[in-house]
């Protein structure tokens, strides 16, 4: 137990925890959206994320950038980052769509029991991560130094880096955008309708299959963006990088109340913060223990998450 550590480094831990939490939040959105509509844990979502991280690295590789190259000039960096984000989001989105088409849609046609979906999801996750693992010889791959972490501003001993600000801002923008999309647009209304009652929504003329595809696509896009943020923050990726991160993100989704978009953000940030505080307190090996203990304690008092389950339920 290192209480003085925690007290002394509270500021930096919070800053880094918020950035980490923002990544979890973006990642958790995919779980929560799919769950809200299909009542299904999309186990393959972690692999959607991993594929996105490779897509960005390969894109930068086209321009001759690898982990050993020098940092390009600032204007180019912006271009590379934007391009990386776009490509990663697109590829992740497409991967999510393909997973839905190959692994889930046939089961829905057969009216399969819910557990069957979970198992095909596990199968899809294995296929994707192993395919990437074989293709990359199970090596990890480093990120070109596009963004050199530099202090943007300092409060006391808290150095907030440009990267952390970028991650948090981007998450906020995506979240507000998504929230408006779900709550204000026609497509968003379709999603909420299907989440509330798939059969009734279908009777009212909502194309259920298209809504489900859309939900997977959005989840994939968010995961792709999260993947690029993750690359900048962590610096490497691997064929199994999605797995443990996926567990944390799924925990975040459950913590906030699965099926609830705002819950995913709240959950993500809480998990990010507690991981950091926990690793300061007990050593970094125990960070996941802290996460899960927090989860269990919160679920004991609020069995359906902090904000409760509600994609379509509360406000139709």
């Amino acid at each position: 137990m290192h209480f003085d550590d925690l007290a002394h480094n509270w500021g930096p831990l919070t800053a880094s925890g918020l950035a980490q939490g923002a990544i979890y939040a973006l990642f958790a959105l995919g779980y929560t959206l799919v769950y809200g509509v299909l009542r299904l844990i999309n186990f393959a979502h972690s692999e959607v994320f991993m594929v996105g991280s490779y897509a960005a690295l390969i894109t930068w590789g086209f321009f001759g950038l690898d982990e050993n190259s020098a940092t390009p000039p600032a204007t180019e960096v912006i271009g590379y980052v934007v391009l990386g984000v776009l490509v990663a989001a697109a590829i992740s989105g497409i991967t999510a769509l393909v997973v839905e088409l190959v692994a889930y849609r046939p089961l829905r046609r057969h009216n399969a029991p819910p557990l069957a979906f979970l198992i095909t999801a596990i199968g899809a996750s294995l296929v994707i991560s192993e395919a990437v693992g074989v293709a990359t010889h199970r090596n990890q791959r480093g990120v070109p130094p596009l963004i050199q972490p530099a202090d943007a501003f300092t409060i006391g001993n808290t150095h907030v880096t440009n990267l952390e600000i970028l991650i948090i801002l981007l998450t906020l923008v995506m979240m507000v955008g998504l929230d408006r999309f779900i709550n204000r647009t026609r497509l968003g209304r379709g999603i909420r309708a299907v989440a509330q009652s798939p059969d009734t929504a279908a009777l009212m003329g909502v194309n259920k299959d298209r809504v489900i595809s859309l939900v997977f696509l959005i989840g994939g896009l968010m995961a792709g963006i999260a993947a690029v943020m993750y690359l900048f923050k962590i610096g490497t990726t691997r064929y199994d990088a999605g797995f443990s991160l996926g567990i944390a993100a799924f925990t975040a989704a459950v913590l906030g109340g699965i099926g609830n978009l705002r819950g995913a953000v709240v959950g993500g940030i809480i998990i990010g913060l507690f991981e950091n505080y926990g690793s300061a307190l007990f050593g970094s090996n125990y960070r996941n223990v802290v996460t899960f203990v927090v989860l269990i304690v919160i679920l004991m008092f609020r069995p359906s998450g902090i904000l409760g389950e509600a994609l379509g339920r509360a406000r139709a």
């Binding site: 844990i41 459950v254 996941n288 899960f292 269990i296 679920l299």
Partner: peptide, 28 residues
Amino acid sequence: WPTLRLRGDYLAIVTLGFAEIIRIFAEN
């Protein structure tokens, strides 16, 4: 005892957490 009043997927993530906690303690 504490977790079985949770339903479905909440139970799933808590049991997953339990196994992770055991593994982490075994490792450290």
